[in-house]
């Protein structure tokens, strides 16, 4: 479960005040809102990458507000993916597992399973500089999922992809979610993308975060579709 209680953030001229959010355990939540509203800042605060001015961040009912990012068990896929340019696809999938001192056999099994599910098995030895947009997205998602995080945070992960690849990755995200029931919060601007994955819809407008019925996504068709 992801829970924000009266969370306030400040970053230069930008600030968010008293944001409340609950994404129940095992739910795929989608967060929407205009550009510059602070969606990314909320995700960064959940990860522990952005300091919280006041309020609390709870993950599975534990207060992690003052915890380091490494201790929170959050799988994070940022907007620009931030792959490690000097590493191969395999290195990315192994990265968090080696940090946790997994045994080599367990690492090999986990990497093989992730590569199979994400469809990147033939790319394992390739450097990430030589991947297409869709392949890079899969690697970033695999890296975030590799260590069995308790929550998954996706910041516009399917941006800059063609519609077909985007639909395929939406289906992949949805199937992974159905398989492992991981609590997920996914930021997107695309109603089509949101419609395909969302169990719950959250909208951030003018600093106010509210939950809306998912049916809104099908009712209000807009040009973004």
């Amino acid at each position: 479960m992801i829970e924000l209680q009266r969370l306030s953030l400040r970053a230069g001229a930008f600030s968010l005040r008293d944001v409340n959010l609950v994404v129940p355990h095992g739910v795929y939540g989608v967060l929407m809102g205009g550009t510059g509203q602070g969606k990314t800042s909320i995700l960064e605060a959940i990860c522990g990458l952005k300091p919280v001015a006041s309020g609390r961040v709870l993950l599975d009912e534990r207060d992690v507000t003052r915890w380091k990012p490494a201790d929170r068990g959050v799988g994070y896929v940022p907007q620009d993916l931030a792959l490690f340019p000097m590493m191969s696809v395999r290195d990315h999938l192994e990265f968090a597992l080696k940090l946790r001192h997994w045994k080599p056999a367990a690492i090999a099994d986990r990497v093989a399973m992730l590569a199979e599910v994400l469809g990147i098995a033939p790319l394992l030895e390739r450097g990430v500089r030589h991947l297409s947009g869709g392949e890079a997205q899969r690697v970033a998602i695999g890296r975030a999922l590799s260590f069995n995080p308790q929550v998954l945070l996706l910041d516009e992960p399917l941006n800059a992809l063609d519609e077909r690849t985007r639909d395929r990755l939406c289906a992949l995200l949805r199937s992974i979610h159905s398989e492992i029931g991981l609590t997920t919060l996914h930021i997107t601007h695309s109603r089509n993308e949101a419609r395909q994955v969302a169990d719950r819809l959250y909208v951030l407008e003018h600093g106010q975060l509210s939950e809306r019925p998912v049916e809104e996504l099908t009712r209000e068709r807009t040009a973004s579709d």
Partner: peptide
């Protein structure tokens, strides 16, 4: 060098030195 990759590494379990 973009700081984002370093931040992602922190979420993956790295200490700052790692």
């Amino acid at each position: 060098i973009d700081t984002r990759a370093e931040q992602v590494a922190l979420t993956l379990g790295c200490r700052r030195d790692q």
